[in-house]
Design a protein around this nucleic acid. Structure first.
Lengths: 197, 197
DNA sequence: GTCTATAATCGGATAGAC
DNA sequence: GTCTATCCGATTATAGAC
C-alpha cells in the first residue's frame, strides 16, 4: 500500500477536482482545507499546487467546467420540432443532465459569492447563455401562438428554478422514479406556458 | 468615540444576530470569523460568548428564528375563501415575506449542511410545517375540483422553489416593480394548478 | 457585560530534497 | 510530480480583571 513518488499528472488532476467538488458541496468552500482535499486524493497538501495556483482558482475551475460541460451537452442535444416539443426536450435535458450532478449544481450556485469579481462574471456569463437557450424556445412559442406568457424573462427564471429545485429533494429510493418525475415536470412546464382557460 | 464597558444585553443580542446574518449570507458561515462579527457589532470577540455558547448555536438560532417567524407571520395572515383565492393569498404572502428577507432565506437554505444532525432536524421540521400549509390549500382545491394536479407533493415543492427563486434575481431598481412580479407569479402559480386545455 | 490576554489548533501557501 | 518541513497569520474558545 506504500505510495510511491512519481508522475501522475493525467490522473491526479481529475482526482483533485473530484475530491474538491465532493467536499465543497458537502461542507462549503471555506470549511474545506487544502489538506482535507489532499487527503481525499491520497497526496500531501503541497502536491495540490501542481494542479491549481490557489484555492480560489480551484473553485473557479469547478464552476467554469460545470457550466461549459452543461452548454456543450446542450449543444449536442437535438432540440427540434414545434416549440412545444422543444420545450419538452429542454425539460427532459435539464432534469437528466442535472439530477446526476447534484454536487456540481450545488457548488455552482452556492459558491458564486466566493468568486472574485472577474471569475464571477465569467460563470455568470455562461449561466446566462443557458438561460438564453430556454428564452429562445419561449420566444418561438410566443411567435407562433403556442405559448402565452405573462413575462418571458421571468418565465425563464421561474422555470429554471422550478426544474433545478428537483436536485434538492429527489431520491433514487424515494416514492417516485426519475421517469415519473420527468413526466410530472413536463406537465407542469407545459401548464406554465399555456394561458389559463 | 471611546466605547465604554457596561450592560447592553437587550440591544447587543439582536445586533449580534443581525451582524452574523448579514456576514454569513454574504460570505458563508465558515468564511466568517467571530472577530468579524464582533467588529461589525462594535465589541470584542470574547463578548459574543455572552450571547451564544458557540458559533454553531449562533447559526442554528438564526435559522430557527427565521422559520419560526415565518410560520408566525403566516398564521397571522388571513388565508380564506375558495382554494383559488387561498392559493393567490399564499403566493402574495410568500413573495412579500421573503423578498425583504433575502439574507435569512439564503442562510436558511445554504447553511443547512453546516447544522448538527439534531439542529438540522429542528429546522427541517419547521420548513416541513410551511410546506404542509401549502399542501393543505392544494388538497382543498383538488377536493372541490378547482385544481387538477399531476402530483400534489411534487407540486408543493415545485411552487415553493419557483417562488423562493425570486429572491435570487429581483432588484428594486430592476425592470419590474414588486407589484408587477407579484401579478406575474400569481398568474404562473394558477396556471400550474389548472389542467391544460 | 465587556475587556484584554492567551491557549491550542489549524489555515494557505512556499522551498527544497528526491 | 510528490514529499517533508516550515513560515506566518488566523481561528475558536476560555480566564480573569474591571
Amino acid at each position: 500500500m506504500a505510495r510511491k513518488q512519481g508522475s501522475h499528472s493525467d490522473i491526479t488532476g481529475p482526482k483533485v477536482r473530484a475530491a474538491a467538488l465532493r467536499l465543497i458541496a458537502r461542507h462549503g468552500c471555506a470549511a474545506v482545507s487544502m489538506r482535507q482535499i489532499a487527503a481525499e486524493v491520497g497526496v500531501q497538501a503541497g502536491a495540490l499546487y501542481n494542479y491549481t495556483s490557489d484555492k480560489q482558482t480551484l473553485l473557479f475551475d469547478l464552476m467554469r467546467r460545470h457550466m461549459e460541460k452543461l452548454l456543450a451537452a446542450y449543444d449536442e442535444t437535438l432540440i427540434t420540432g414545434t416549440p412545444t416539443e422543444q420545450l419538452r426536450a429542454f425539460t427532459l435535458f435539464h432534469i437528466r443532465y442535472h439530477l446526476p450532478r447534484r454536487d456540481e449544481v450545488f457548488v455552482s450556485y452556492m459558491e458564486l459569492r466566493n468568486l472574485s469579481p472577474e471569475n464571477f462574471l465569467v460563470v455568470e456569463g455562461l449561466r446566462r447563455n443557458y438561460e438564453d437557450a430556454l428564452e429562445g424556445i419561449l420566444k418561438a412559442g410566443e411567435a407562433d401562438g403556442s405559448f402565452t406568457l405573462p413575462d418571458r424573462k421571468v418565465t425563464v427564471l421561474s422555470l429554471i428554478a422550478q426544474l433545478t429545485g428537483i436536485t434538492n429533494w429527489y431520491r433514487d429510493d424515494g416514492r417516485l422514479t426519475q421517469e415519473q418525475v420527468e413526466d410530472i415536470y413536463c406537465d407542469l412546464v407545459l401548464r406554465t406556458v399555456s394561458a389559463p382557460r
